Amino acid sequence: MSHGDVVVRRCATHPWMPVSPCGDHCLAPDAGEARVGVPRRAFRLTVVAALMLVAVPTAVVYPLLGNRLGGRVSKLWFRSLLKAFGVRLVLRGDRRFAVSGQGALVVTNHCSWLDIVALGAVQPVRMLAKTDVRKWPLVGWFAAVAGTVFVDRERLSTLPVTVTELATVMRDGGVVGVFPEGTTWCGVESGRYRSAPFQAARDADAVVRPVALRYLVAGRFSAAPAFVGDSTLWDSVRRVSRMRGLTLEIEVLPELSARSGANRRDLAALAETAVATATWRGSDRGDRPEQSPVAA
């Protein structure tokens, strides 16, 4: 079944609400991807639980650690979380999104909650997230402590305030992470990039850093990590925990300058093209699949 055959079940409260056609149909259960055994899954989830417990006191003292030490601790924790899930991290391109003290807007394709872990494994990033995340048990508290900027997607009237807040963070030398698609896609296709965050980069005179994320198993694309459809966060976590040989590739692409004279829509289009092109570049990293369900 292609995306064109799917009825989108997510309701938009206004015409600009991000909507994705991806759902449970993208996660075909019998496509044959290798899985680890029950003991290995249990071990992975136990280590993940231990890391979450360690994160509680760490989050309390995190604001006192300073940028350098806090950044190292944060990066180590995110990399440890990926390792706990059995995810092999491969970093391509630049080793950082921005030099210390340089404001930057990091924009990337959005498939999974693992995307946030991936960005944090490279460099501390203040994410833009929907207000619903603030209500998630424990995760919402972590997000708030980490300086996440929350946006109410139901109320367009609050968007200018959010853009101003993002610009302030970048003007002060902060690195902001945004998923311009506004919602998750399985990875076979991607959504259009919303332009509002790019206005924040223009206002702050910051750089825009496109980043391409790829999830591969045995060198080929996998949609299994995607957080789409009716699955809960716990469902997605369990699905990832049983995967064997999952590689997460992060390609940090050349930066775009918000000072180039391009308006926010042009910047969004440039970033969208750069990420989409890089996501499927190189046959040695897995050919782009047909628009059909992919294994879970």
Score class of each variant (00 low, 15 high):
Ser2Tyr: 08
Ser2Ile: 14
Val8Leu: 10
Arg10Cys: 05
His14Ile: 11
Met17Asp: 09
Pro18Glu: 03
Pro18Ser: 09
Val19Asp: 10
Ser20Arg: 09
Pro21Met: 00
Cys22Asn: 03
Asp24Cys: 07
His25Phe: 07
Cys26Ala: 11
Ala28Tyr: 00
Pro29Cys: 07
Pro29Ser: 06
Asp30Cys: 11
Ala31Ile: 12
Gly32Leu: 05
Glu33Lys: 01
Arg35Ala: 13
Val36Gly: 12
Arg40Asn: 00
Arg40Phe: 00
Arg41Ala: 05
Arg44Lys: 05
Val48Gln: 02
Met52Arg: 01
Val56Gln: 05
Val60Asn: 13
Pro63Ser: 02
Gly66Thr: 14
Arg68Ser: 06
Leu69Asp: 04
Val73Trp: 00
Val73Arg: 02
Val73Phe: 00
Ser74His: 13
Phe78Arg: 15
Leu81Trp: 07
Leu81Lys: 04
Lys83Leu: 13
Phe85Pro: 11
Val87Gln: 06
Val87Pro: 04
Val87Tyr: 01
Gly101Arg: 11
Gly103Phe: 07
Leu105Arg: 02
Val107Met: 04
His110Phe: 05
Trp113Pro: 04
Val117Gln: 06
Val117Trp: 03
Leu119Tyr: 00
Gly120Met: 12
Val122Asn: 03
Gln123Leu: 08
Pro124Asp: 02
Asp132Ile: 05
Arg134Val: 13
Arg134Ala: 15
Lys135Ser: 08
Leu138Phe: 14
Leu138Asp: 08
Leu138Gln: 10
Val139Ala: 13
Val145His: 14
Leu156Thr: 15
Val161Asn: 10
Thr164Pro: 01
Ala167Thr: 09
Ala167Ser: 13
Asp172Gly: 14
Pro180Phe: 01
Thr184Pro: 10
Thr184His: 08
Trp185Ala: 01
Val188Gly: 00
Ala196Met: 06
Ala201Leu: 06
Val208Gln: 04
Val211Met: 02
Ala212Leu: 06
Ala218Asn: 14
Ala224Gln: 12
Ala224Asp: 09
Val228Ala: 04
Val228Asp: 07
Val228Phe: 05
Leu233Gly: 11
Leu233His: 06
Trp234Asn: 09
Ser236Met: 01
Ser236Leu: 03
Arg238Leu: 15
Arg238Ala: 08
Arg238Ser: 03
Val240Asn: 07
Ser241Leu: 11
Arg242Gln: 14
Leu246Met: 09
Thr247Trp: 00
Glu249Gln: 15
Glu251Ala: 05
Leu253Gln: 03
Pro254His: 02
Glu255Ile: 10
Leu256Tyr: 04
Asn263Glu: 07
Arg264Gln: 08
Arg264Ser: 06
Leu270Trp: 01
Glu272Gly: 01
Glu272Val: 03
Glu272Asn: 07
Thr273Lys: 06
Ala274Met: 12
Val275Pro: 10
Asp284Trp: 13
Asp284Asn: 13
Gly286Ala: 09
Asp287Pro: 11
Arg288Glu: 12
Pro293Trp: 00
Ala296Cys: 10
